[in-house]
Design a protein around this nucleic acid. Sequence first.
RNA 1: UGCCCGGUAGUGUAAUGGUAGCACCAGGGAUUUUGAUUCCCUUAGUCCUGGUUCAAAUCCAGGCCGGGUAACCA
Length: 569
Amino acid sequence: MNTAPTDTESPEEKRSLNFIEQIIEEDLKTGKWEGRVHTRFPPEPNGYLHIGHAKSICLNFGLAEQFGGKCNLRFDDTNPTKEEQEYVDAIKDDIRWLGFDWEDREFYASDYFEQLYDWAVQLIQAGKAYVCDLTGDEIREFRGTLTEPGKESPFRNRPVEENSDLLERMRAGEFANGEKTLRAKIDMASANVNLRDPVIYRILHAHHHRTGDEWCIYPMYDYTHGESDSIEKVTHSICTLEFENHRPLYDWFLENLGIYHPQQIEFSRLNVTYMVTSKRKLLDLVKEGRVSGWDDPRMPTICGLRRRGYTPEAIREFCRAVGVTKFDGVTQIVELENSLREDLNKRALRVMAVLKPLKVVIENYPEDQVEELDAINNPGDESAGKRKVPFSRELYIEQTDFMEDAPKKFFRLSVGREVRLRYAYFVTCTDVVKDDDGNVIELRCTYDPETKGGNAPDGRKVKGTIHWVSSEQAVTAEVRLYDHLFAKEDPNDVEEGRDWRDNLKPNSLEVLTDCKLERNLADAATNTPYQFERTGYFCLDATSSSEKVIFNRAVSLRNTWGKMQKKGG
RNA sequence: UGCCCGGUAGUGUAAUGGUAGCACCAGGGAUUUUGAUUCCCUUAGUCCUGGUUCAAAUCCAGGCCGGGUAACCA
């Protein structure tokens, strides 16, 4: 990238392309696919989508968009024992929410079961596949190891007729689970273990979420994926690095079947600090009740991030920013948080909300008076307009905005110090009220009527401006603050004998039950991001109601004061 | 131990034989009715050793380090 603005990209100043874009551009130049670009996003419906999937979605749909091509949604549903309709529905919701559209191209590998079966017959006819009676354990044993070649199955040279007959009977349900498999006849001595006569069909007497009980044999991933790509005339089949060793097999099936042959390209999956993206671990977190569900705002799932207050724009920007390479790295979670702040800063409405209230009485303010003061909704966006906030004698401010023995660098309230109440008046703290344990429970202050709106006619300045909420009109709410789900950057970094679960952070959720929000938040809308000034970005929780108002903190504001404090000891 | 793939500031990435650049983080400063935002500045990098070349992050060789890989999972 150079410094040229991206939206006025000139032909001479080409922005840098990632390695996949380069391949596509080259293919377009040589006419390899007749100018077509066709990708697909192929989730297995056995879990919810997470941030890693978002990267793949942005890549596949993004490439199609960028090059005027198409991207299919295809469910890789070849294992009925793990897959469910619930996941199909959730996956579709998440992709749509992210802002991508597969139009009428919603496909399922299970749509191709009949064709896949015919091709298996074709392989048998060509002497390139055979039915094997070895058990699972035996197959593993015969496969050899990483350093030693495998041994050929005693069933490897069954005559074609016998193989055809057996496969037919497998399909007819004559055999029990695991009794037989169909295997490709490739090379038991291959250095690539994937080529040592891989299983292509297994017997599974199980109900499939789409094909019901029509089948009792199901094709394996390796056998299914390339052919599905082929059927859909995909040009670039983009997957993650762990499938690199499978590419020769992907190619083998397509070559030996003599059918349309897309190109598989692998990129490195997304890793983010303090997050796990293993589907199994995510499932464990949900099943074991360590989080409230797939959409727990601490989860790296798309629905979790959404409930937390993330926007599609922020996630897409993040996926753009991390780039596409073959280097297996780890992205810092602050990069994600930063994308959110950047997006929300532009559009979140500013409001005042006190998370940990401390009562303030303005002693020289008239008892029954309420003033409606002007407040700006978004200082960076004039079109967001203004609103009125009520001001009165009794207010709440943040406990952290008062300090008894305040250091010089503390720009907030302390006895004898003057600060500005945002959009209101200058106030000076005159006294504190304490409970029996010596905790400050109330502040007595005086205000300067001349400073209405926040400016002093005599030109005097104050160091600090703090937020406040008028107590009479305040909305009481619950606010949930989230921290990283895990205590370690790498949740999988555990000592011998311990488990990734041991790295779960004990206080990743902090619930504040007595928060005071400005009156305007009484009719806050879901999906509307707010900035609680000086605190962070928040949104209404999905479970919020007028009886119990609940807000989630999506991300805090940058906090240099907090950093200074930490450093100061 | 085989095979495959990688290695550029702390992190994520660009440079495709010709000035090692960008973003985040960190540090410093300016502005500020959010200790936010915005703006400016600074620190800091080609895994190693050879070779090819006028010229190597880039090409070649060897090494080192990291990842993936031995489900009837995907």
